[in-house]
Design a binder for these strands. Structure first.
Lengths: 100, 100
DNA sequence: TCCACATATCTATATTTTTAGATATGTAAA
DNA sequence: TTTACATATCTAAAAATATAGATATGTGGA
């Protein structure tokens, strides 16, 4: 558990917002075309629309979040869905509380 | 409680180290000349020595940590002592757990 | 196979952060 | 009231991050 690496991800409001939104996809995103649930998370396009930033920026952000193990990608056909990695997020809270 | 602002402070290993060291000053710093306790924390010079970074850099770091309310400065004569602001640190943990 | 679409990666620029040297300020002691 | 010391602030350069346009890659359908 690398506190600094994860803190870097959280040091940006958009990335924090993405994590918050993914906590409750039903409330924050429209339904997907080919899937009627959010079990694997939300596709990149929806996240991009909600942030208003460019496609490449969001892809970069999601990549950095994935490198820190905060999100998990799943490919479904043309789309990549991202969901929170709750285990790592909880482990981060625990590490902060214990180490910091 | 601004998650992003505090995360920016924690997005640097030296600043995280300083917070960790200040948790247990007796174990991490030599005793002060004019005071025989760490109730108000540790003077800037000791922190600088332990990090190996320049005086201006450490002063800048401590200033950013103070702006985020993570540490509290106290002046004693020529020295400024810094200690952790446990209330804000705990509030940050709580905010992360609830909001993130 | 060719095309359209979703996403990832590459490239480049703007902004922010890191870092230290120089200088300023505040304090205590001579 | 000058001097020495501890710390803060200013200035500037290097490094990292943010951001987007262009291009590449992977996928499903015509």
């Amino acid at each position: 558990m690398n506190i600094v690496e994860i803190s870097k991800v959280l040091a940006n409001q958009t990335r924090v917002n993405i994590l918050k939104w993914l906590k409750n996809p039903e409330a924050n995103f429209p339904p997907h075309q080919e899937i009627d649930h959010f079990d694997d998370g939300v596709c990149v396009g929806f996240i991009q629309d909600k942030t208003g930033l460019s496609q490449s920026t969001i892809s970069t952000y999601l990549n950095s979040m994935q490198n820190a193990n905060l999100v998990i990608p799943t490919r479904h056909g043309k789309w990549t869905y991202y969901r929170r990695n709750e285990e790592v997020i909880q482990a981060y809270f625990k590490a902060l509380k214990e180490e910091l």
